[in-house]
């Protein structure tokens, strides 16, 4: 079976740190920055565990602010 590998790019300045993407991710890829904040003071989302990403785009779908871009390749 072909292995699928994905990657998520978060527009960190647009992100409001709502955490919905973190919860929606089936592979526990995303987390909110524990300390760092963006210019608007939000703990933005980032790929804490990038190797687990399968590019399913669940995070992108649930993101209310359209901050997330998802890529996927079949290996």
């Amino acid at each position: 079976m072909a292995k699928i590998k994905g990657a998520v790019v978060v527009n960190k300045e647009r992100c409001k740190g709502c955490e919905l993407c973190v919860v929606a991710c089936p592979s526990k890829v995303l987390a909110l920055q524990p300390a760092e904040v963006n210019d608007r003071g939000y703990h933005y989302a980032f790929m804490q565990n990038p190797d687990a990403c399968i590019g399913c785009a669940s995070c992108g779908l649930v993101c209310p602010d359209g901050c997330i871009t998802v890529y996927k390749v079949k290996l």
Binding site: R14, K16, L20, L61, P64, I68, V70, V73
Partner: peptide, 20 residues
Amino acid sequence: NLVYTKPRLMNDNPMHYCPG
């Protein structure tokens, strides 16, 4: 490899809605 991104017709204006 793009599978998902912000819709083309949604512009870059930051939305005033609360987080989430």
